[in-house]
């Protein structure tokens, strides 16, 4: 997979290295900006409220 990408990049080894670095940074940016924020609520650290049994005396507590 990585070998295939390397072989299909243009230029000499130096140019390929620069492009690879840019690709890696781009992937990390996408992960931090979009993918992890989406995945993070699926992890358990976000549940800090008491909820369910909605509407006791509180008139419904949002998540």
């Amino acid at each position: 997979m990585y070998g295939w990408i390397w072989r299909h990049l243009p230029g000499n080894a130096f140019v390929r290295a620069i492009i690879s670095l840019a690709l890696v940074l781009g992937v990390v940016y996408l992960l931090f900006q979009y993918i992890f924020p989406w995945a993070e609520p699926l992890l358990p650290f976000n549940n800090v409220t008491v909820d369910e049994g909605m509407g006791a005396a509180t008139g419904g507590v949002p998540r």
């Binding site: 549940n47 008491v50 909820d51 369910e52 049994g53 909605m54 006791a56 005396a57 509180t58 507590v61």
Partner: peptide, 12 residues
């Protein structure tokens, strides 16, 4: 320490 559905803790 209580359970997540213990909404009574929020009562007036």
């Amino acid at each position: 320490k209580t359970l997540p559905d213990d909404t009574g803790v929020l009562k007036p």
